[in-house]
Amino acid sequence: MTATNTPAFSICVYCGSRPGENTAYTEAATAVGQWIGKLGGQLVYGGGRTGLMGTVAEATRQAGGRVVGVIPQALVDKELANTACDELHIVANMHERKAMMAERSNAFLALPGGIGTFEEFFEVWTWRQLGYHDKPIGLLNTAGYYDHMLQFLDSSVASGFMGPWQMDLIRHGTDIGALLQALVEEAGLAPESQNLRGKI
């Protein structure tokens, strides 16, 4: 963190509330959190304590980063909230949750996840296409998880339902450090130390 305790950047991470069947997913979530924390950043996420959500939050916290969770009351009632967050905002519904997460972030990153992750990723991508924001968006394709989705998106372009410029609004890759660095730089910010690229 800086001397004023202000995060160097704030990244919204969308990911699964389950860990998935491949340990590479948990390893990636841990590495993302470590990168954010070690470079003085802030994680904004869905406020859960289970699955990849809990993993990325704890890794960020352990590495010295700030963690902001935003969770709807219905999930708090199910005892799924992560009370270890630096800030835990309890909101009425998913619409408020997503709006606050977007407002508090400089960039967005989707890790492996289920329909909630897909919906959040596609919505923030749609918002950028429509000009509601101009914040960078990334897709971390750990262990080929998003291979088929990316192939489908390419087929949508080939079929004339999307343009190549829409695909250019998102970044995707497998190198965690390089992808995060690119997102932060595109947001017009710079981590405190750039020599950690590829080392976490």
Rank of each mutant, 00 (worst) to 15 (best):
P136H: 13
L80D: 08
A59C: 09
N141A: 05
K38V: 00
G114S: 12
L139H: 03
P112A: 06
G64H: 13
T83R: 15
I36W: 00
T142K: 02
G54R: 04
Q73I: 07
L139M: 06
Q151C: 03
A63P: 06
N82A: 08
N141I: 09
A107H: 12
R66I: 08
H148W: 05
A28E: 10
F161I: 10
S159R: 04
A29Y: 02
R49E: 09
A31R: 11
G160P: 00
P72S: 11
T26N: 12
T117K: 03
T50S: 14
T26W: 02
K135N: 11
L139A: 02
T26H: 07
A31H: 03
R104V: 07
T83G: 09
Q34T: 03
E96T: 08
L111S: 00
V124K: 01
V67F: 08
E103Y: 11
V91P: 06
N82L: 11
A110N: 01
I137G: 03
E103W: 10
A84D: 15
C85L: 13
M100R: 15
Q129H: 15
K38M: 14
N106H: 15
S105H: 07
G37V: 00
M101Q: 15
F152K: 00
D154R: 14
P136G: 13
T50D: 10
A84P: 02
D147F: 02
A84N: 14
W125A: 06
G138H: 07
Y146L: 03
Q62G: 10
F108H: 04
A31D: 08
V68D: 07
A158I: 09
E79K: 14
A102Y: 14
G48F: 04
N141K: 07
P136C: 12
G47F: 12
L52Y: 00
R97V: 11
Y145S: 03
P72E: 11
A110M: 03
Q73H: 05
T126K: 08
R61P: 08
G41M: 10
L75C: 05
A63G: 10
M149G: 01
P112W: 00
T83A: 15
A63K: 06
S105T: 10
Q62R: 15
F122A: 09
G113F: 04
G131Y: 09
Q151L: 08
Q129W: 14
K78F: 06
W125N: 03
F152A: 01
T142Y: 04
Q34S: 06
G47Q: 10
T26A: 15
Q73K: 12
K78G: 01
L88E: 07
T142D: 02
Y132W: 13
S159Q: 12
E103F: 11
